[in-house]
Design a binder for these strands. Structure first.
Lengths: 143, 143
DNA sequence: GTGTTTGCAAAAGCTTTGCAAAGTT
DNA sequence: AACTTTGCAAAGCTTTTGCAAACAC
């Protein structure tokens, strides 16, 4: 599905800024802040405004095109991956890393087939792992 | 364990402000923001400063006495419950509700006995359920 | 008494808003 | 042509900071 089509499906007009921002988010695996997205696209779009990045990300989130992720570091982060997955928060490096495990996903789905939550329209369920990187220069490994 | 002892154990001097703030958090199940804590204790402590509430909550979180919880609504929230538990975020009411289920807890503990995460010192693992309340005037029910 | 903590006010982030100009369909 | 979106600057939040006075041990 093209950027254009995804915007159309979300009822958003296909402006150059929106396509640039959505493409940047698709490419960016680090759950960037609006400021970070701005830095990423500024070189190729020198006239873009930071406020537009903020507003655009917010409208994407409202439309369900991306997920807004709250972070302990005090700014919002955006995630182009809208499938079911969890996050690893490294507090000492301010990184947010995707965590997906098929078995865990099944476990959670099965669990909530039995336990029902009433009076709530569930958007998503995510497992959050909070911690500190031991060696800041190395990756977090999942095995 | 008394408020005094908990502060001592965290290496924090037992000031009147700290005991008031810790007691308020203990009593408050709604994961209050610093502003909200300030409103709660202000009547009985008219000279307390909002900055002190911010700084105190932050030092409690650093000491592991409470948990800092990031929220989509743009402010931080604090949680006196430091045991393993999850959260239900109602985006339309800005409520954060505790979610604890014995079975789910076991499931998650067992799961992470098998799947290891390397180069990360895990602080806690929480399951977050994001959604909107259907009837804003009624409680979310868990069964 | 020594060192830490508080209150105040000011400053520093992060995010939203108002409005004219530009863009989209 | 009608309506929406953008850029800019200003305003509005939340949170942190500097420093003298007050407090804890």
């Amino acid at each position: 599905m093209t950027l254009r089509d995804r915007l159309a499906a979300a009822n958003l007009k296909a402006t150059h800024q929106r396509m640039t921002i959505l493409a940047a988010l698709d490419d960016c695996k680090i759950h960037p802040s609006p400021e970070k997205v701005y830095e990423m696209i500024k070189p190729g779009n020198p006239t873009i405004s930071l406020a537009t990045v903020y507003n655009t990300l917010e409208s994407f989130a409202r439309a369900g095109l991306v997920n807004k992720v709250a972070s302990i570091s005090g700014n919002m982060r955006y995630d182009a991956n809208i499938g079911a997955h969890g996050h690893i928060y490294c507090h000492n490096t301010d990184e947010i890393i995707d965590y997906y495990d098929e078995d865990l996903n099944m476990l959670i789905i099965d669990f909530f087939k039995k336990k029902k939550i009433g009076n709530l329209k569930i958007k998503n369920i995510t497992l959050n792992i909070n911690g500190d990187k031991l060696d800041r220069n190395k990756e977090v490994t999942i095995k």
